[in-house]
């Protein structure tokens, strides 16, 4: 009898412990699927100033790339600020806004005209860059040099034509063959004189 009672007691206790320890669900279970998207996030990069040394009075273009790295469409605005500039330069901050789809990018372009020579430091979208505005241009672009060459050649041609015409009016009427010979001799004389001049200069 005692053995039976002990076995029953052990059985009841062993059944009770797991039941007491368990967490019991008392309702239906709901699984709420949550799709969490990142808000529009804007990242600025590639701040450039063009030209790197603008001439005073001419326009300089300042641009920056902006990327939306978030999962949602969103708008952002960027203000171009000069944190360092010559005292005489006055500037009203410019602001531009852009709306970007998720994963897309755009370029914000600002045009400024430095009216005073000196060092300028710009801040745009948390990025900064420095450029110097110069008073004069120290060089010509390629098309400038080409224009100068064309002008010089044209001027020489015009002078030669004028001299040729003047010489023709002072000399008696010559046949075409004599005239061609005379011109050739004059040209040869010109180059020989030029050669003498160069040799003298070299000495």
């Amino acid at each position: 009898m005692r053995k039976i009672l002990v076995i029953v007691a052990i059985a009841v206790a062993s059944l009770s412990i797991p039941v007491l320890a368990a967490t019991t669900s008392l309702s239906n279970n709901i699984d709420v699927g949550m799709l969490v998207k990142a808000p529009a996030t804007f990242v600025y990069s590639d701040l450039t100033v063009s030209p790197e040394e603008p001439v005073v009075g001419q326009n300089a273009t300042i641009s920056v790339r902006v990327d939306n790295t978030g999962d949602l469409v969103g708008s952002c605005s960027a203000t171009l600020v000069f944190t360092e500039m010559p005292d005489a330069f006055t500037y009203v901050p410019q602001t531009q806004a852009v709306t970007l789809d998720a994963g897309s990018h755009d370029k914000l372009v600002f045009v400024v005209s430095p009216t005073v020579a000196g060092v300028y430091k710009v801040d745009l979208g948390g990025l900064s860059s420095t450029f110097e505005a110069v008073s004069v241009s120290y060089g010509l672009p390629w098309w400038g040099y080409a224009l100068v060459v064309i002008l010089v050649v044209t001027a020489i041609g015009a002078i030669m034509a004028y001299n040729s015409k003047r010489g023709a009016s002072e000399t008696p009427k010559l046949s075409f063959r004599d005239s061609l010979t005379l011109r050739f001799l004059k040209l040869a004389d010109y180059f020989s004189g030029l050669g003498r001049f160069i040799r003298r200069k070299k000495k």
Partner: peptide, 11 residues
């Protein structure tokens, strides 16, 4: 960000 499941029940 991502996809998650919120498991809800009375206990």
């Amino acid at each position: 960000r991502g996809y998650y499941t919120l498991d809800v029940q009375w206990i």
